[in-house]
Simulated assay, not measured.
Amino acid sequence: MILLGPPGAGKGTQAARLVARYNIPQLSTGDMLRAAMAAGTPVGLAAKELVESGKLVPDDVVVGIIRDRIEEKDAENGFILDGFPRTIAQADALGEMLAEKGVALDAVIELRVDQSKLVDRIMKRAEEAKAAGQPVRKDDDPEVFKDRLDAFNRDTAIVVPYYEKAGLLKVIDGMQSIDAVTQAIELELSALDE
Rank of each mutant, 00 (worst) to 15 (best):
A107G: 07
E186G: 08
V103P: 04
P161K: 06
D141F: 04
M1T: 10
I65S: 02
A47P: 04
I66N: 01
G44Y: 08
P142F: 02
A107H: 08
R112D: 15
P142C: 10
G40P: 07
E186I: 07
I122M: 04
N23E: 07
S28N: 05
A129N: 07
V171C: 11
V43C: 00
G133V: 08
A89T: 15
E76H: 08
G40N: 00
A184C: 03
M32H: 03
R125D: 08
A75D: 03
R67A: 13
A180W: 05
D173H: 11
I185W: 03
A36I: 09
V19D: 12
E76S: 08
F152W: 14
Q115H: 12
G174D: 04
T87Q: 11
I80Y: 01
A39V: 11
D193T: 11
E96V: 12
D139E: 10
P161A: 00
I158H: 07
R148A: 00
G8K: 01
N77R: 13
E96N: 14
A180Y: 05
A15N: 06
K11Y: 04
E188V: 07
A104L: 14
Q183M: 07
D140C: 07
D82H: 04
V181N: 08
K130A: 09
L111T: 00
M97W: 10
A184F: 02
L33E: 02
K138R: 05
V61R: 01
M123P: 01
P135G: 10
A9C: 10
V159L: 02
T29L: 04
A129S: 11
I88S: 01
R137E: 06
D141N: 13
D147A: 15
K101N: 12
G133M: 09
E100W: 02
L118W: 05
V171W: 12
R137V: 06
D147V: 11
I172A: 10
L98A: 12
Q90N: 10
P58C: 08
A126Y: 03
L45C: 09
S28A: 09
A99D: 15
L105W: 15
A104I: 12
M123T: 01
A93Y: 08
V144Q: 06
G78P: 03
A151N: 10
R137W: 06
K138Y: 00
K170Q: 10
N77V: 01
V159M: 01
A166C: 11
E49V: 09
R67W: 00
P42S: 06
